[in-house]
C-alpha cells in the first residue's frame, strides 16, 4: 500500500490539509532565490552606507583644505600606503606573521577551552575541582600575564601565542560549559527512553545541542584572538601588523597606523565570516528570529 493510499483510507489527508497550510506558510520559500539575492544586495548597501559616507566626507574635507591631513591623513593616502605595502610584499609578510600567531593561539586556546568546558560540563566532580580555579584565573586581566610569559617563555613567538591562547580560552570555556549546562533535560530523557549508551547520548544529543552555543563561543574567542595579537605584537615584534602600528607611531606615520588598522579590520571580519561559513551547514535546523527580523 502506498503512503498516499494508506492516508486516504484512514481519512486524514483531506482534513489535515488546511491546518498544514499554516505550517507550510511559515517555512521559508525554496524558490525565489533571486528575491533573496536582491534582499542581500539591499542589506549590503545599507551596511556600507554610513562608513562610506564618513570616508567620503573625510576625503572631501581634506581636499577642501578644511584639515591639513598631517595627523589625520585622508582615506586616499591611507589606501595608497596600504597599496605600497602590498606591492613591496611587506604587507604579506606582516599579515602572514599575524595570522599565524592568531591561528596557533586560537587553535590552542579554543581546543583547550572546548576540552575543559566539555569535561567540567559533563563530570560534576571535575566541575567542582576545576571550575572555581578557572573562574578565579579568569578574573585576572589577561595582559597581566605578559611579564610572566616573557620571563618564562622568552620574547619570541611562544609568549605571543600563549597570550592569544589565554585570551581565546576563557570565552570558549565559559561558552561550552554553559551550553552543556543548559542542554534541555527533556531531550536527554528522549535519549534515555531509547536506551542510548553514555557515548551515544553524548554524540547524538549533547553534541548537537551544544553546537550553537559552542560556535558563538568560538566566534567570541576568535575576536579576542585578534584583540590579543595586537597586544602581543605591541610588546615587541619585528613583524606583524602590530609591529606596523608601533613603527608608525615611532616614526610619525599615521597613514601606516591607519593602514594597519584597516588590515586588522579586514582580517578579523574575513576570519569571522570564514568561521560562520564553515559552521553554517551545522546549524541549518535552527529556528531563529534572525530569519524573520
Amino acid at each position: 500500500m502506498s503512503a498516499g493510499a494508506a492516508a486516504r483510507i484512514l481519512g486524514f489527508e483531506a482534513d489535515g490539509k488546511t491546518r498544514e497550510a499554516g505550517a507550510r506558510a511559515r517555512s521559508r520559500p525554496h524558490a525565489g532565490s533571486r528575491r533573496a539575492d536582491g534582499r542581500h544586495a539591499v542589506r549590503f548597501v545599507l551596511g556600507v552606507l554610513i562608513p562610506l559616507g564618513l570616508v567620503l566626507g573625510w576625503e572631501l574635507a581634506t581636499r577642501a583644505g578644511l584639515t591639513q591631513g598631517r595627523l589625520l591623513p585622508p582615506p586616499s593616502r591611507v589606501l595608497g600606503t596600504l597599496l605600497a605595502l602590498a606591492q613591496s610584499g611587506d604587507l604579506r609578510l606582516h599579515v602572514q606573521a599575524t595570522l599565524l600567531r592568531v591561528a596557533l593561539g586560537f587553535v590552542a586556546g579554543a581546543g583547550l577551552g572546548i576540552l575543559a568546558g566539555a569535561v567540567t560540563g559533563t563530570v560534576p566532580l571535575m566541575r567542582h575541582l576545576v571550575d572555581p580555579g578557572l573562574q578565579a584565573l579568569r578574573a585576572v586581566p589577561s595582559l597581566a600575564w605578559v611579564p610572566l610569559f616573557i620571563l618564562w617563555l622568552g620574547i619570541l613567538e611562544t609568549p605571543k601565542v600563549a597570550l592569544i591562547a589565554v585570551g581565546v580560552f576563557f570565552p570558549v570555556y565559559i561558552g561550552v560549559s554553559g551550553a552543556i549546562a543548559s542542554v534541555d533535560r527533556k531531550l536527554v530523557e528522549v535519549g534515555r527512553i531509547f536506551r542510548l549508551s553514555r557515548w551515544a547520548l553524548a554524540r547524538r544529543i549533547l553534541l548537537p545541542a551544544v553546537l550553537p552555543g559552542t560556535i558563538v563561543a568560538l566566534r567570541t574567542g576568535l575576536g579576542l584572538g585578534f584583540l590579543f595579537v595586537v597586544a602581543a605584537e605591541l610588546m615587541g615584534a619585528s613583524e606583524g601588523l602590530g609591529y606596523l602600528l608601533v613603527e608608525g607611531q615611532q616614526f610619525g606615520k599615521p597613514d601606516q597606523i591607519l593602514a594597519a588598522i584597516l588590515a586588522f579590520a579586514t582580517l578579523g571580519k574575513l576570519a569571522d565570516a570564514l568561521l560562520v561559513f564553515l559552521t553554517r551547514p551545522l546549524l541549518r535546523w535552527q529556528d531563529v528570529a534572525r530569519d524573520v527580523l
Binding site: S2, G4, A7, F12, A23, S27, R284, Q286, D287
Partner: peptide
Amino acid sequence: VLARVGLSAHGTRWPRDLSGGQ
C-alpha cells in the same frame, strides 16, 4: 509509520516547519 500518521510528504522537513499537532 509516517504514512500512517499522514506525514509522508514531510519526511525531509525540520521540526520547526510543523504545527504542534503534526
